[in-house]
């Protein structure tokens, strides 16, 4: 009888005995929270320390017949900077004839003699187009299986944008930042004309450039923990 009573008591006490165990487990487990963090990337040159940017003409080496490459690049960068740069953005016509001019400090100093805190964005540009051909096997539809498979020559248009950009300080005439970009893309759509492809390519350049000048971020996962 005594044993039975004891067993009954033990059964009743079970939840009570489990309580401290539960607390122990709760305390020993390290809690964590997964968070998504936007980690800022390194800035090569902080443009925000300048009050104004002047986008000058570019030295164009190769350009398509369909549009004025220099005009489009100047417009594109000036508009893009206006949206993201806090200071003043303007453009200026400058005749660039040689590549050596980018290293000529006196030339750049003389352009804006009394303007402090201003940076010039300029550079070299060439935009080329080529047609690449390849022999591709074309398959007939199921109903036409009795015909032999045919081979056809397919064409693709490749566009390449070469941009060497210079950011020049107007007070010293020194190039603070230089970077060369080469972007190319193939299109099998024959209606993909040079101007359309240009905007795809220059957009890629703009993204990379602005990320290193105005800052960007990468989304990463991290754990926040409790001891």
């Amino acid at each position: 009888m005594k044993m039975r009573r004891k067993r009954k008591k033990m059964k009743r006490n079970k939840p009570l005995l489990l309580l401290p165990l539960f607390f122990l487990v709760c305390c020993s487990v390290t809690n964590y929270w997964k968070v998504k963090v936007e980690v800022p990337s390194k800035i090569a040159l902080d443009l925000n320390q300048y009050s104004s940017i002047v986008v000058t003409d570019f030295l164009v080496q190769k350009e398509p017949k369909e549009f004025n490459l220099n005009q489009e690049i100047v417009k594109y960068f000036a508009d893009g900077l206006e949206q993201q740069f806090k200071g003043k953005v303007s453009s200026k016509k400058v005749s660039l004839e040689k590549e050596e001019l980018f290293k000529d400090r006196d030339f750049w100093k003389s352009l804006f003699p009394d303007q402090e805190g201003t940076v010039i964005l300029t550079g070299n540009a060439s935009y080329t187009q080529e047609i690449r051909k390849a022999i591709l096997e074309t398959r007939k539809k199921r109903d036409e299986d009795f015909y032999p498979r045919s081979q056809a020559i397919e064409e693709r248009r490749f566009y390449t944008l070469d941009l060497s950009l210079y950011l020049i300080d107007t007070t010293t005439g020194e190039a603070l930042y230089t970077k060369a970009f080469k972007e190319s893309q193939g299109y099998n759509n024959p209606n993909q004309t040079a101007p359309f492809a240009f905007f795809d390519l220059v957009e890629r350049v703009k993204e990379k450039l602005f990320q290193s000048l105005l800052g960007g971020s990468r989304i990463q996962e991290r754990y926040l923990i409790i001891d």
């Binding site: 963090v37 980690v39 800022p40 990463q220 926040l224 923990i225 409790i226």
Partner: peptide, 19 residues
């Protein structure tokens, strides 16, 4: 000696760009 505090602080610094 709280590893968690140091870890969390590191994540916050990373977020702020203080690498």
């Amino acid at each position: 000696e709280s590893a968690a505090a140091h870890n969390n602080l590191a994540v916050a610094y990373e977020k702020k760009g203080l690498l």
